[in-house]
């Protein structure tokens, strides 16, 4: 891949860091998730007891953090500066591309723990639940960016393309035992 630093965001995608057209990023994301929850409430059942957990996701290359409570129609997302200290059940830290890779299934529950680019602390089981929920929801970056149509297609293609490149960062094995 072309990334100079693997896992960091190529320039055009830094758009993601900017507020959407009408709303600041936090409220825009909150609205996007709640809209999604209204459309497909079953998706959030997957979170079970972890729906009210708080996730502090720090995108190291954006200088920004996201405080997320993924509770369906009561979901909340706040955008914070990386410097602000916040308490949360789960802390996740890593380059935005790798974090986005958690969304499409490129990096899965196992890879989460293997990936040197991501640091996880706190309630790891809640993070696993969130990751599995997001993957099953088939949520795309454009859903979060509030984009539609051709712009959405282009953004998703660019992000997933870049994620595929970042894939090499993740060498992972599963636990044994299955069926």
């Amino acid at each position: 891949m072309v990334d100079p630093i693997p896992g960091e965001l190529p320039k055009p995608l830094r758009l993601l860091a900017f507020p959407s057209r009408f709303l600041p990023l936090g409220p825009a994301l909150t609205l996007a998730v709640r809209r999604f929850a209204r459309r497909r409430p079953a998706v959030f059942e997957r979170l079970g007891e972890h729906a009210r957990a708080s996730f502090l996701v720090e995108a190291t290359d954006l200088g920004q953090s996201f405080l997320i409570i993924p509770d369906g129609m009561r979901a909340e997302i706040k955008v914070l500066s990386s410097r602000s200290r916040r308490e949360a059940d789960v802390h996740v830290k890593g380059p935005i591309l790798v974090l986005l890779g958690l969304i499409d299934g490129t990096f899965d529950g196992d890879a989460l723990f293997f990936n040197r680019a991501i640091t996880v602390s706190g309630k790891t089981d809640a993070l696993l639940a969130l990751r599995n929920t997001i993957e099953d929801a088939e949520l795309k970056p454009s859903d979060l960016a509030g984009l539609t149509g051709e712009a959405a297609r282009l953004l998703d293609k660019a992000v997933f393309g870049a994620i595929a490149g970042a894939r090499r960062l993740s060498g992972s094995q599963g636990q044994g035992e299955a069926a």
Binding site: G105, D108, G109, E135, G174, Q175, A179
Partner: peptide, 13 residues
């Protein structure tokens, strides 16, 4: 023949 990995992401699968 069985492939293990119900905890793995769909991309991997």
């Amino acid at each position: 023949l069985k492939i293990e990995g119900r905890q793995r992401g769909k991309g991997y699968v």
